[in-house]
Design a protein around this nucleic acid. Sequence first.
RNA 1: GCGAAAGUAGCUCAGCUGGUAGAGCAUAACCUUGCCAAGGUUAGGGUCGCGGGUUCGAAUCCCGUCUUUCGCUCCA
Length: 511
Amino acid sequence: MANNNEDIFKKIIAHAKEYGFVFQSSEIYDGLSAVYDYGQNGVLLKNNIKDYWWKSMVQFHENIVGIDAAIFMHPKVWKASGHVDAFSDPMIDNKDSKKRYRADVLVEDFIAKIEGKIEKEVTKAKKKFGDDFDEDQFKATNKRVLDNLAKIEDIKNRLYPAMDNNDFEAIKLLIEDLGIACPVSGSKNWTDVRQFNLMFDTRMGSVADDSSKVYLRPETAQGIFANYLNVQKTGRMKIPFGIAQIGKAFRNEIVARQFIFRMREFEQMEMQFFVRPGEEIKWYEYWKEFRMKWHLSLGIDKSSYRFHDHEKLAHYANAAADIEFKFPIGFKELEGIHSRTNFDLSRHAEFSGKKIQYFDPEINESYIPYVVETSIGLDRMFLAILSNAYDEETLEDGSQRTVLRIPPVLAPLKAAILPLTKKDGLPEKAREIMDKLKLDFQCQYDEKDAIGKRYRRMDAIGTPYCITVDHQTLEDNTVTIRERDSMTQERVPISELDKIIREKIKTGELL
RNA sequence: GCGAAAGUAGCUCAGCUGGUAGAGCAUAACCUUGCCAAGGUUAGGGUCGCGGGUUCGAAUCCCGUCUUUCGCUCCA
């Protein structure tokens, strides 16, 4: 069964490439690891997902507005958010146990062990000498203690300068010299010390010194927090209100795999909702429910979704849950709903020196707003839609077709216009219809190959409706409209087409 | 990052122990048919992932490298 799911996942990846949804980046140069491009159909699907999200969050909520912040931000933003410090530690791996440690922590643990030895000596001596025992004097005279203290001094004199200078070779050498072994495997078979900063950085301006270093944002949220005052003031926003954003973020993952599930460059759709302190849990519950409703509005089976409440909370959160989706690779995080307290805004107030406060006239009080965040991975949503839609159907006559049952509102193409034959004026008539419909819908005209084959081509990219122009069309201006999932056809007047398609697409749309 | 496997046309693959690359499907043009893919004719498309070595000669053997897949590890 697990194998079966893996196979399906592989098939979906192959299908995504074959039909122009997702290509590996720079494929002609052997590809770039964990970076992907969206193709001619992929970009349409992706844009439709964005649109569906944006409408439900911004257009349908009077108290939510959008922004589009730059990817570059002032470096201090990432100091304030904690991203710089949390991810600049030197790490070392044990090759036998495959465990990873902070290199400096390994050394400090070693120091702690020596300190433990000293402590033991002291306790022993205390027992021996009783009340007359002078600890300081003992430490200053006992040889074993002195040796150990000198050793600690020695280690510290090597460790801290090396840490300050990011001299990883020196740290590695220190670990080797001290003969530190892995607590799990007991082995001294270490990799080099490496720094894993999840943030990409680059230089701004021409001077290549440290002061011009800027990061590619590892999350879009900070662009919202940094603009909180701007938006609240210029938009005359009253709490509770939200700021939404769709945009790219970048994380230099050590291991990024599983197709577009984990990429180094990815896109988030986030909304930060600012609330009165004490009301955050109420809103947290509200957004959890609302976001789940949004997913279910696409008509995907309920059993494909579940909540996963976090037990271990991040430093900034007081409640957090994931919406997980049943990907072919198992239930995985698709969206996060987090109650972020006032951590971010307070930190930005502190680091920027600006007063980030909201005066709440209803309770006559000033406060730093609390934040409830909804954050969904656009690429993951794309993958969810794609893997849910993929179907290899065996028809009544025993033949097979591959069909993407993408919700019509998200489908790359809404309709295909197909003349039944290439002559008798049918192409001309079909072109007429195409020219009219393309003003409202993404359509494709196709006259190549047998009609059945053209239907299958459209099935493979998830086009929900095929409009076929036949000889009767020339007589009474009606066409057939063929539905992707049921493969049934109905005959309708050309003049009604745009209305009918609009109505059909609307089915299942949110709110 | 560690370990294992793989990489030949857009896709799926063949090419036996080294002798200078093939099929089916797909694509394009034309003909034929005309409501659920795969009729006919023709054409385009590959320095066999990349680099190096061995050899008279490498898709084939060796080394390195890149990418992918799986397992481990990581994932505020």
